[in-house]
Amino acid sequence: MRRRHLAALAYEVESRGLVWKFAGPDESLLAVHGPRTGRQAMVVATPSGDGWYYLWPGGGMAEVARLAEVADRLHALLG
């Protein structure tokens, strides 16, 4: 399930011009890179209660259902 959520986010961030790769143990993290700025962030998808959330640096947190919004926020942070 985790990998599926990260793969969905990878597609979204790539469509916004960001570069990504799977990282960490069992490729459980998504490393996202802004090629213009050189900024990077690691994103995790984690279960919480009865749903899943994305977490990223700077206190970023959103339900996986808010996929496009998360990609937009990462683009603003890293782009």
Rank of each mutant, 00 (worst) to 15 (best):
Glu69Val: 10
Ala8Tyr: 03
Leu78Thr: 02
Gly79Ala: 09
Pro35Cys: 11
Arg73Ser: 07
Leu55Val: 10
His75Val: 08
Arg4Phe: 09
Leu77Asn: 02
Met1Ser: 12
Trp52Asn: 04
His5Val: 03
Val19Lys: 14
Ala7Asn: 11
Glu14Leu: 04
Leu77Tyr: 05
Leu30Tyr: 01
Ala68Tyr: 06
Val19Cys: 07
Leu55His: 09
Gly79Val: 07
Ala45Val: 06
Ser28Gln: 09
Thr46Lys: 11
Ala7Tyr: 02
Val43Thr: 06
Arg36Ser: 13
His5Ser: 03
Pro25Trp: 09
His5Pro: 01
Gly51Ala: 14
Arg39Asp: 02
Gly79Asp: 06
Glu63Asn: 14
Ser28Leu: 11
His5Asn: 11
Arg36Ile: 08
Leu78Ala: 02
Ala71His: 01
Tyr11Asn: 12
Ala65Pro: 00
Gly17Phe: 10
Trp52Gln: 06
Gly34Phe: 03
Ala23Asn: 09
Pro25Met: 11
Pro47Cys: 12
Ala41Tyr: 04
Gly38His: 09
Arg2Thr: 07
Val44Lys: 12
Ala68Met: 03
Leu18Lys: 01
Ala7Asp: 12
Val70Met: 05
Arg4Glu: 12
Ala23Arg: 12
Met42Phe: 15
Met1Asn: 11
Phe22Trp: 08
Ala41Trp: 05
Gly17Asp: 10
Asp26Val: 11
His33Val: 11
Tyr53Ala: 11
Trp20Arg: 09
Leu77His: 04
His75Trp: 15
Trp56Pro: 00
Gly79Phe: 02
Asp26Cys: 05
His5Leu: 03
Asp72Ala: 12
Gln40Met: 13
Glu12Val: 02
Ala68Asp: 14
Ala65His: 07
Lys21Trp: 10
Gly58Ser: 08
Ala7Glu: 13
Arg4Asn: 06
Leu6Asn: 01
Trp52Thr: 03
Pro47Lys: 08
Gly38Asp: 14
His75Cys: 10
Ala68Gly: 03
Leu6Trp: 02
Val19Ile: 09
His5Glu: 09
